[in-house]
């Protein structure tokens, strides 16, 4: 039953995104908003009915989950890239809150520092540098929106079709988790008491225990990416010849004594 409700919801959500997509003729933003909010409400209601046991954190979960979906929809449909970036910041904040609800504080703060603090600011920088005057067709006309929505929500639907098979009762975080639940051969299960002592410490022990090689590898990856990014963007483009006589380099201008 659940998957079929989800399929309907996804279809409606796809329709909402299609309506909100920038089109030369103008998008039906209001209808899309109503439809989208309706779909989100339906989704959250479904979650609350089927998955979630009553808990004081649930309110925050629903609030920020709904906000995250709404903001994500706005990122992909807003015709102005700067707004897309701002809405993306909102998505990041919501996801960070959701991570905090899952007791992953370190990951949440790292997400904010890296995404909101560095990546997104860089995006904003490029958006501003490459800013076109007024709305251009790049932003006002989507490319095959119908197909894109169809493909994406079919994938989401495929995930949703299997959602019922996830155990509705979360496994308690204890040392008594049977090894069979996880196929990870490395022993990374932490007792609840260690979780209590702080997510940061626990995650540090994992990162620099079993995953030390991966940490080193990601460091190398970052280094390679840095070198690559510098190599790509350092290239200097010559300016067009203005026809004025050019002096050889080193002889440009008149020398003037200081002060």
């Amino acid at each position: 039953m659940i998957p079929y409700i989800l399929y309907v919801l996804f279809a409606l959500g796809g329709a909402a995104i299609y309506l909100a997509m920038p089109k030369p003729s103008g998008s039906q933003r209001r209808a899309a908003l109503v439809l989208g909010v309706g779909v989100i409400a339906g989704l959250l209601a479904l979650m609350s009915m089927h998955f979630v046991a009553p808990n004081s954190n649930n309110f925050f979960f629903y609030m920020f989950a709904g906000l995250a979906i709404l903001a994500a929809g706005r990122v992909v449909t807003h015709p102005v890239p700067t707004y897309s970036a701002v809405y993306f910041a909102l998505v990041i904040l919501c996801v960070a809150v959701l991570l905090v609800i899952q007791r992953a504080e370190f990951l949440a703060v790292a997400l904010i520092i890296i995404y909101a603090g560095a990546i997104l600011v860089t995006y904003a920088f490029v958006i501003m540098l490459a800013q076109q005057s007024g709305a251009v067709s790049t932003d006002t006309r989507a490319r095959e929106p119908l197909m894109a929505i169809l493909v994406s929500f079919v994938i989401a639907g495929a995930i949703a079709g299997k959602i019922e098979q996830i155990d509705a009762v979360p496994v308690k975080m204890t040392a008594q988790v049977p090894q069979a639940v996880t196929d990870v051969p490395i022993e990374t299960t932490l007792p609840a008491t260690e979780m209590e002592s702080g997510h940061t410490k626990a995650i540090g022990e994992i990162m620099f225990g079993p995953y030390l090689v991966v940490v080193e590898l990601s460091g190398i990856l970052l280094l390679i990416a840095m070198v690559g990014a510098i190599a790509i963007s350092r290239k200097q483009v010559p300016i067009e010849d203005t026809g004025e006589p050019k002096l050889p380099v080193g002889q440009i201008g008149r020398e003037v004594p200081p002060f």
Binding site: F51, V52, V95, E144, A148, I149, V151, A160, A168
Partner: peptide, 26 residues
């Protein structure tokens, strides 16, 4: 903490929306 099913559903939705954007925007 809501159970993981909600998060997985939410993750799927976010993934789908992001994919729409990647495919459809220019």
């Amino acid at each position: 903490m809501p159970d993981p099913g909600s998060y997985i559903l939410l993750g799927a939705v976010l993934f789908a929306i992001g994919m729409v954007g990647f495919l459809a925007r220019r």
